[in-house]
Nucleic acid binder design. Structure first.
Lengths: 217, 217
DNA sequence: GCGGGTTTGGCAGCAAGTTGCCAGGGGTTC
DNA sequence: GAACCCCTGGCAACTTGCTGCCAAACCCGC
């Protein structure tokens, strides 16, 4: 097979590169916008079954935050993580699906076209290596699905955010309360509520959570 | 020109793809391990001059943390940033250089070889798009050079890290001191030192910093 | 206006954290 | 050994943070 080949339409992709999916032994990595990578359910099933059957050692999937919008698609991610794959959420959008198998083959999806979506399948080491390195960098900086979901819980209203900002500024309670135009008692009540919302046992712990969740900038 | 071509040796690359560097108008993005992308200084000069001459609108460069190890290479990055390029530091290693120009051409560098380093130059939209998307994701999650230098880990010794962990666990000072086998007084001294090191005015603020810097594990 | 709920703020007391001060306890240097 | 330095830990005074209690204020629908 040529080192690089472009295929139009997913049916063609499955027909001509499908065997690659079942040949994976070490690692299967995949970056995509959401779970609906394969428009036709049957293709998705086929590919998944092949990957599963191959008992690949490590499966990593990186998604855009978009993948978490709907309840059912969120559920799908959780199931995916439950079935052994490592799932992370990247900061930005991932409009193009990208797959790397065993660091030997890469499949890159292009835009939709009248003739079917374009897929490039390559074994070119420089391309595979470069794509893999970029994936690695994006992966490294992405947050794990579990902690992403855990950290998503606190729906903070504007008041709580103001308290958070005051707390983060390093001011004392007295100064912060004056700043926010409320009494010391109320301010502290707010802080206590915040700690409860963040499930923190101390102000320090709440600070850590806030910092991790990027609630300060 | 073919949609994808592999070239061996950087001289050949410059000869056959050099014109691409001066054709860039909109955007030049580059991911690399460090500044010494081009082993031969002359090649580097040539490429840089061509890019500069083309007055490209936006230049983005993403490096591994490795690129900051030496004083002179750090200086190089700062100069790079000063000359108009946006420079960011990724979380992980970027062993393969990757370049995307105007979202139309991609150059991916492979491993060194006896015949010279292998470079793949491609205009295949799916590949360029996929690489660009991954770059975007890695870029989005990377930290700006300036803030990286500013917020550089205020190198903490093992003791301080232990204190940090205790603090992050939400325990009271008394419990933490017992846990760490030191007196209350010493523990609090440590905490005070930590706050000073993190330039924090309160424990909450220190928590935020620690969370942002990912010092919690 | 009136009774119901919720939110606010003052007070008080307690718990927790902060800091200066000083007395030891190892080291090192001369 | 003496002088010195750095780190430790106890004490104490002080500040800050935490929370239960209650009265006042507010916001509803009626």
């Amino acid at each position: 097979m040529a080192e690089s080949v472009t295929i139009h339409g997913e049916l063609d992709l499955l027909a001509r590169a499908g065997h690659l999916f079942s040949s994976v032994t070490e690692e299967f990595v995949c970056a995509a916008r959401d779970l609906d990578t394969w428009p036709r359910p049957r293709s998705q099933e086929t590919a998944r079954a092949r990957v599963r059957a191959s008992r690949v050692r490590r499966v990593r999937k990186l998604f855009s935050p978009t993948a978490l919008v709907g309840e059912e698609s969120r559920q799908g991610l959780v199931e995916l993580a439950g079935s052994g794959a490592q799932v992370r959420i990247a900061a930005g959008a991932l409009p193009h699906e990208t797959i790397v198998m065993d660091r030997r083959y890469a499949i890159l999806a292009g835009a939709d076209a009248p003739t079917g979506r374009a897929y490039t399948v390559t074994t070119e080491p420089a391309v595979v290596g470069g794509v893999y390195a970029l994936f690695e960098a994006a992966w490294e900086a992405a947050t794990d699905l579990a902690s992403f979901l855990r950290g998503e819980q606190p729906h903070l209203d504007e008041g709580s955010r103001a308290v958070l900002r005051a707390l983060g500024s390093g001011a004392t309670d007295e100064a912060a309360a004056r700043e926010l135009g409320m009494s010391l008692r109320t301010y502290r009540r707010r802080v206590a509520e915040l700690l409860a919302a963040l499930d923190a046992g101390s102000r320090f712990q709440a600070g850590v959570r806030a910092g991790e969740l990027g609630l300060t900038g």
